[in-house]
């Protein structure tokens, strides 16, 4: 049984951009936003909206929720634009904000009963060997149709993970947050992030294996 120290802080921090090197056109846009230029707000939404919506859709099942999260994210960004130091990439800052908005939206949704993660993890014999030894996977190049099919299978497999594991996997492996950032966003300890990430990857591997294992020689 897990001995994770689960709860850290309550709500995720607003993403705080770090100094790093904003592009000149971003700095100009920031100046216009800070001056209250209406056209600049629209430009920000039109430029970054598509990517932020793609991120929100990865976390939220319903299109309406995904759009709400994007709206919440932009409104948070508008309010916090003066806190943006202009040194980070605007896209990175907005990405962190929409991730937090999507997680907040998830917290307001009633959770469905979930399959315990243990049922998706490898099982072992008494001597410590795997009960079902891993099989090698196909390694040949995929054509576009196979890639689309695998992409669909992968999305379904991630969807099948318990939510707290799925969110850690999405944040770490897909959205590219580091362990500390993920811990803050989820309100859990870095140790719990590592435990959940490893279990989520193992569960995902197990869900993909039937579709990807090499064919048995005839």
């Amino acid at each position: 049984m897990a001995t994770e120290r689960e709860r850290g802080s309550s709500a995720p921090d607003e993403a705080v951009p770090q100094r790093g090197g904003g592009a000149p056109h971003e700095l100009a846009l920031l100046e216009r936003l800070r001056a209250g230029d209406e056209a600049a707000y629209e430009a920000l939404v039109r430029t970054h909206g598509p990517r932020l919506l793609a991120v929100a859709r990865r976390f939220l099942r319903s299109e309406e929720d995904a759009r709400d999260a994007v709206q919440d994210a932009f409104l948070s960004a508008f309010r916090a634009v003066d806190a943006f130091q202009g040194g980070a990439r605007l896209s990175t800052w907005l990405h962190r904000i929409v991730v937090n908005a999507a997680l907040m939206k998830l917290r307001t949704r009633r959770r469905k009963p979930e399959q315990p993660i243990e049922e998706l993890l490898p099982s072992f014999l008494e001597d410590g060997h795997m009960a079902a030894p891993a099989s090698p996977w196909r390694s040949e190049e995929m054509d576009p149709v196979e890639r689309r099919e695998l992409s669909r299978l992968l999305s379904e497999a991630i969807e099948a993970l318990p939510e707290s594991y799925r969110n850690v996997l999405l944040l770490r492996d897909i959205e590219d947050l580091d362990t500390e950032e993920t811990a803050r966003a989820m309100g859990i300890s870095p140790g719990a992030v590592k435990t959940r990430l490893h279990r989520a990857r193992q569960a995902l591997r197990g869900l993909l294996e039937p579709h990807l294992r090499e064919a048995e020689p005839e």
Binding site: E38, E42, V45, G49, P50, L53, A54, R58, D173
Partner: peptide
């Protein structure tokens, strides 16, 4: 996961859905 679920720039729709920009503004 990284390869298939992180959309490349060319697979992200160019525009946000109709109405969303207006709703945000």
């Amino acid at each position: 996961g990284k390869e298939l679920l992180c959309p490349a720039d060319d697979s992200i729709p160019e525009e946000v859905p109709a109405g969303l920009v207006e709703a945000i503004l």
